[in-house]
């Protein structure tokens, strides 16, 4: 009996402390990872499995299922679609216990089987048969799928607690007045350019309009950040900012504006 107790590391005197120690250790493990039996429900309720599960299912339902089970789809496509669904859901469910295997299954195998499904029924993904609305929703669904698998926003990211004794950092300067509305206006205007480029119906001009809209968007967002933040910064000693480049830029602007207006009137 004593040998058995010694083999278990337990004797009559210290049985209670060892049990307490074991309980503490197991509760600590359960607190961090959860017990094996309760790991899946906890992962589904608090972890990342639920969003991955939903994202995989939605991406599959929008882009893979119609190809695998549509009218005239071969049996192989349906089989591959079912396997893809199994891989996507299985990867999410295995995430808590086998993270590496889960990623291989939920990302690599899911994408591979989805691709094979599309290849097994290429007629269903022909550009003439693609529905633009469904295609847009599918693109969004795959984007959400990618975000759901990203580690960056996961709950397991270690959060370093703030040091309560550290002195609070003071901002060295404040934003200039109306900085946020100007930056927001720049962003909204850039989005408006990108949307307006899609209204160009002429095929010859459509590509040029897209390129110009992109260039205008980048320029306006960049300039908006400069105008929003650079005002109110330290001035030069003379307090004068009409330097030669500024005057040159203003002269170009005025000259071209007047010349263009005159030519427009004369035409």
């Amino acid at each position: 009996m004593a040998e058995r107790q010694a083999a278990r590391g337990v004797d009559a005197g210290d049985e209670a402390p060892i049990e307490l120690h074991d309980q503490t250790a197991s509760s600590a493990v359960e607190a961090t990872l959860g017990s094996p039996a309760g790991l899946l429900p906890k992962e589904l309720s608090q972890g990342r499995a639920a969003p991955i599960l939903v994202a995989s299912m939605i991406a599959w339902a929008i882009t893979v299922a119609p190809v695998g089970f549509g009218r005239g789809a071969p049996i192989l496509a349906g089989l591959l679609a079912v396997l893809a669904l199994g891989a996507g859901l299985g990867g999410a469910l295995l995430l808590a216990r086998r993270p590496q295997l889960a990623r291989h299954l939920g990302i690599s195998a899911f994408l591979g089987l989805a691709t094979l499904t599309w290849l097994a029924n290429p007629g269903a993904v022909h550009p003439l048969r693609l529905d633009p609305v469904r295609g847009a929703f599918g693109a969004v669904a795959w984007g959400v799928f990618a975000l759901a698998w990203s580690e960056r926003w996961g709950p397991r990211a270690r959060i370093v607690p703030a040091d309560p004794d550290a002195p609070s950092l003071q901002a060295r300067s404040a934003l200039a007045p109306a900085a946020q509305p100007i930056a927001a206006l720049g962003v909204l205007a850039s989005l408006g350019y990108l949307v307006s480029a899609f209204r160009v119906r002429d095929p010859d001009r459509a590509l040029v309009a897209q390129a110009l809209a992109l260039a205008c968007s980048v320029a306006v967002v960049t300039a908006a950040s400069t105008v929003a933040t650079a005002r109110g910064k330290s001035r030069n000693p003379a307090g004068r900012r009409l330097t030669a480049p500024v005057i040159r830029a203003l002269l170009f602007l005025v000259t071209f504006a007047i010349a263009g207006a005159v030519v427009t009137i004369l035409r």
Binding site: L212, V220, R231, R241, T243, V246, A249, A257
Partner: peptide
């Protein structure tokens, strides 16, 4: 309009650029 917009945008940023880096 696109060229005028480009010149106006450049002028607006040049106005706010520090004197030392503008030269």
């Amino acid at each position: 309009l696109l060229v005028v917009g480009g010149f106006a945008l450049r002028a607006s940023t040049e106005l706010l650029r520090p004197r030392g880096s503008a030269a």
